[in-house]
Design a protein around this nucleic acid. Sequence first.
DNA 1: TCCGAAACTGAAGGATCGTTCATATCTTGG
DNA 2: CCAAGATATGAACGATCCTTCAGTTTCGGA
Lengths: 221, 221
Amino acid sequence: MNRPAPDLLKPRKTPQQARSAVTIEAIHVATIQVLLADGVGRLTTTRVAERAGVSVGTMYQYYPHKQALLFALVERQFAMIESAMRDAAERLAGSDLETIANGLAIAWLDAKMADRVASRAIYGIAAEFDMSQHMKRAATCMTGMIEDLLAAAPGAKFADPASAAFMLAALLGGSVRVVMEAEGSEEAFACLRRELPRACHAYLIAAGAGVADIMDQAVGG
Amino acid sequence: MNRPAPDLLKPRKTPQQARSAVTIEAIHVATIQVLLADGVGRLTTTRVAERAGVSVGTMYQYYPHKQALLFALVERQFAMIESAMRDAAERLAGSDLETIANGLAIAWLDAKMADRVASRAIYGIAAEFDMSQHMKRAATCMTGMIEDLLAAAPGAKFADPASAAFMLAALLGGSVRVVMEAEGSEEAFACLRRELPRACHAYLIAAGAGVADIMDQAVGG
DNA sequence: TCCGAAACTGAAGGATCGTTCATATCTTGG
DNA sequence: CCAAGATATGAACGATCCTTCAGTTTCGGA
């Protein structure tokens, strides 16, 4: 979808006093609250300001327009998750497929669930304007990281490492997203945490393991 | 998110002449075109009418308000996919886990890709108003269908069939959704079609098969 | 051919929303 | 304590947008 170009989406000015920092934070949490309470269609500058306990003009001192505010929220979330996954990848480098699969699944779940309220809200705005640039960059980054992990895994013989990495990224991102967007219950998340590592592990084994690994798995399990 | 209640979302009147049927169809495709071209935020009654080559008032003869139009599109898509999956389930009843996994994955992909343009567009509006009722009903329906299939599969010993069915539904729905929303390339879809059945199969084997099945799989593959 | 019903038109009303800016208040270095 | 910059205010403006409805055009049976 062709949404407004990501031009001039940067914040207008950076806070220099303490009170402005708390104001910006209040605006951020208010945005997420309004988003979850009223939906994207009713996400209004006035409503956000009212919820944050500030005036409308205050927001326009830090963001040139509404989209810049939303853009900032999305970017912050992206950076947080990318950082978490990068840490996980560094920690998992050289591990076997099972450790990699479990580690990636748990890291992804933890990153998304750390602030599940914000995550759920941000899913809604990511589709509002043209995030294809960011989405594709993030997807490429994730796929690349996974591909490197798979290449360095001992005993793995992937016919097509790129496809396996792509698929694993889609499985991770997609399954967690649909459960969160469906306002998943506590049991749903518990099930996800239990089954997602198993699913990732099973897929990686199927896609890139030799016969020996499968039999090891069967005997060892 | 609390969006407008699904009250009075039904169409206003049903077409009785031939021209009105083509008008409604034109409005539908125009809605999807505008949705893909301009995004949800710019989906306007005027824009849709203009694109469809009709007047704004015409739409209001068949739908009491804009949301009813969007609701109709979402419902039609839901019904189409539910029907396709129900057919697949009927066809797959009693099959082994591999046949079930492959059959479900391919059926889901085919249903979503049959009108991928509409699918992609509808992902955008489903979040706009309160579809939690429909989403949960659809999810429950899908999970139930899968659970029945798993229960009837020969040689399957699931410790927790409900969890396996839930997870498989999340994997199917999520992975296809993220790829479609990312404006996936032709290669991405090809990869999905190649890897998704494999992933589903691997997960089902891991979640519900005995050791013998895994060794069979290793030797046979 | 003719008439009632169905379908279509599009300007106008009413409401909401994003953004601006002149003004007021607060903070802090000197 | 005092400017001067930083921060906050909120009424008002212009731009859309959804929805209505009185009037016009088209269709189909008699």
